[in-house]
């Protein structure tokens, strides 16, 4: 049958301290976001990308350890990854249209 089996029956158990470390990292990154926010004026245009980057790192930590994707099958990782890919697609093509239109913005 399927592509991803023969995994042995004992599921992987993440050690307690790994969970605590990941949580610690998440707290730290949250503080980092706020600290970066206070230097928004100095960071200028980089402020948004930096905030987004930190959020992405946090998201990856959650996905890999809390959601156990690190020890999950390739198929499940592909499935979850597909969601982000297709979102990027939606943004890309909608954006392609909007930012190549002859601009005629409302006065609002």
């Amino acid at each position: 049958m399927g592509n991803n089996h023969d995994e042995n029956h004992a599921h992987h158990i993440t050690p307690l301290e790994t969970y605590l470390k990941v949580a610690g990292a998440l707290f730290a990154l949250t503080f980092l976001t706020v600290i970066a926010h206070h230097f928004n004026n100095q960071l200028g245009v980089l402020a948004a990308p930096i905030a987004f980057l930190i959020a992405t790192v946090k998201a990856v930590l959650v996905m890999l350890w809390f959601m156990h994707l690190k020890y999950d099958s390739v198929m499940n990782r592909v499935i979850f990854g597909a969601g982000f890919f297709f979102l990027a697609l939606l943004l890309f093509f909608s954006g392609l249209d909007i930012w190549t239109r002859v601009a005629e913005f409302s006065t609002l």
């Binding site: 089996h5 999950d72 499940n76 597909a82 969601g83 979102l87 939606l90 943004l91």
Partner: peptide, 27 residues
């Protein structure tokens, strides 16, 4: 294993649904 795959498939739909809002927000 089957249930787990079902759960992940459902989570993708959650991501895409919320994602629509994020795309609108970014634009």
């Amino acid at each position: 294993l089957t249930s787990k795959e079902g759960i992940w498939l459902f989570m993708v739909t959650e991501i895409l649904m919320f994602g629509g809002l994020f795309v609108g927000y970014s634009i």
